[in-house]
Write a protein that binds this DNA or RNA. Structure first.
Lengths: 348, 348
DNA sequence: AATTAGCACTCGACATTGATGAGTGCTAAC
DNA sequence: GTTAGCACTCATCAATGTCGAGTGCTAATT
């Protein structure tokens, strides 16, 4: 039995209709809605074949057909048409990137929001992992009579503030010099490279202010680990409730629970092995609990080879073509911005 | 018809049971579970009276009774027993506050998380509004060859970083001096006080670097407005799904939608007029869409009189006594920490 | 040989009916 | 004033019947 043109047309009709309505599609519906020039009876015969071949499923005896995972797979691989984004969609995506150009965590958070808003699916983004994050700048600023602000930036412009409480706050210029001194010693280091020797140097240089060392080190550890840890930004989980496939509250709840576990999210995003766009449909997912969802992932790369992943999760009945377009466009935007960030050498 | 002791006992039994089980409570259940020394028939008579008085409701003819909003009101005002928090609950709340002592937005975010984790209800917290937030510190730090970090702190330790791109980054000491100079001029100002005269001074002082002024001002505006804007932290919305009263997905969805609108959250928290704990039960809420929820709010105050509100939203069948204890305890914790923050004078 | 009309058949969705049981309200007895 | 007893109400659930959408098969048509 060959998958001739007509079968493909019918399959496409079924998938399109089902994606739009979430209702099983019957032969009469297709005959009426899509002018294929054949009667419902013929369509029935073809549908019977398609079912035998595994592309569609009859959820129960006298219902229409719905696409199987295999059907979606065929659709994604061969039938799906690229969809151009509308101007305003483009603009929305672009404006987000432009507005949040400076700090990578904001950028990703906002990106996730924008994508989930546009697609109505759940969006996951992992921040680029900088293995052994390098310190780029460490500075001290006065805040008030008993505390100073420690600003730590790692490469990739991951910038964190820490408020340190000191019994005696050094005079302004002194504080500046301390900051510069610490910066000179530690700049370019990873957390692992800060060994006893380095600490000893710091201690010597800081002299009477050496008592801030423990606080300093703990803050550096937190920040570098934070930069190394995979940060996952999640957005649009509530959209799930809008889909009829999750009108069963139990299902929605269990999916929510899954999505609350960061390690699960990371696993999900790490399925992404090659660099192209990857689409996992229903049972193709290794994670048992999302066997009735599809996950589309793609990576964005920085100049230095570090990469992060963007994933979109929705029902298998997902608007694949829209999602692919949105992802493609957004990855381009992000890579542009990240290019700008990494182009800056770590000099001052 | 008087509300004698026995009636009150029965009402209390009904409310306790209903809070625990979410099932209408019948006369036999009470007779069996609570040893009041009277038969179910007597209880029936009393329940009939209680219903006439409006404290309980029969959802349909042959079901048990459930508390009415009026019933809960009586319970909250007169029957509810204060519950002591368990040691570990205390500790959880306290540790959150201690860990996030330095920056107010983290503090509130974490507090909201902790409360919703402990109570299983949805938590809303508004950050203390600093009307006309004052600049406390403004500093410039080198970042790399084409950008600098602008750190702005307002009173209340609201600290934000901004990355500014410059075509030419001044030398380190110069940058420090610029930062100090800007800081000297602007420290203590509100956004409104930065008028043409001040800008002119800045311009003159910055000399050839005056071109950063637009970026500087825009960053200051963002930060001060950010500090002035009421920030609302929301946590635990997904817990809602766990309650049988929201097993209707439509209801859950509409509540989610409400909670996504920041202005609604603000309205909700601003219902809190006096400084005590305020409990709005079901229909007592002015907001139509939460007429079947209860909202408990309380304020926390800073030394300077600014105040924020913490609110907890759950079904009318809510464990009022737990929530009240948690809120009381947490407010104390927060006020302690805020005290420490404000005690520091804005000096350096 | 492919297509189609026609028809019997299947099965979910929905309404109807009846049995069950939880719970009430009333009354009469204690 | 309290309680036992009983009739009554009504939600819930299972069983039954009807309806209609949709299929699969067959025979007629092209």
């Amino acid at each position: 039995m060959a998958l001739n043109d007509r079968k493909i047309q019918i399959l496409q009709a079924i998938i399109n209709d089902y994606i739009a309505t979430a209702e099983p599609v019957g032969s009469r519906t297709i005959a009426k809605k899509y002018n294929l020039g054949i009667s419902s009876a013929t369509i029935r015969n073809e549908m019977s074949d398609l079912e035998e071949m595994g592309f569609i499923i009859q959820p129960h005896a006298s219902a229409g057909r719905i696409p199987s995972d295999l059907g979606y797979r065929l659709y994604v691989d061969r039938l799906m048409q690229k969809r151009e984004l509308k101007q305003e969609e483009q603009q929305l995506l672009q404006s987000v990137v432009m507005r949040n150009i400076s700090q990578i965590d904001y950028l990703m958070e906002e990106t996730a929001k924008a994508i989930s808003m546009l697609t109505n699916y759940t969006t996951l983004i992992s921040e680029p992992v900088s293995k052994g994050a390098k310190l780029k700048q460490i500075r001290l600023l006065p805040l008030d009579s008993e505390s100073v602000v420690l600003v730590i930036a790692t490469d990739g412009n991951y910038i964190k503030n820490h408020v340190l409480k000191l019994s005696v706050v050094p005079e302004e210029q002194k504080l500046f010099d301390m900051g510069r001194c610490i910066n000179n010693i530690l700049k370019g280091c990873t957390w692992e490279e800060i060994d006893k020797r380095v600490v000893a140097i710091l201690k010597k240089e800081l002299q009477e202010y050496a008592y801030i060392l423990p606080m300093l080190l703990s803050a550096i550890e937190k920040t570098t680990k934070g930069a190394e840890n995979i940060q996952v930004h999640l957005s649009g989980t509530k959209n799930i409730l809008a889909f009829p496939e999750f009108s069963d509250i139990q299902r929605a709840k269990s999916l929510f629970q899954i999505l609350e576990q960061k390690d699960v999210l990371i696993t999900l995003l790490e399925e992404q092995k090659n660099d192209d766009m990857q689409i996992l449909i229903g049972s193709e997912n290794t994670l048992q609990s999302i066997k009735d969802c599809s996950v589309i992932t793609t990576t964005y790369k920085m100049g230095d080879g570090t990469r992060g992943t963007i994933g979109i999760l929705g029902p298998t009945r997902m608007d694949y073509s829209q999602v692919v377009s949105v992802l493609n466009s957004m990855v381009k935007n992000i890579e542009n911005v990240l290019q700008i960030l990494t182009d800056k050498k770590n000099d001052t």
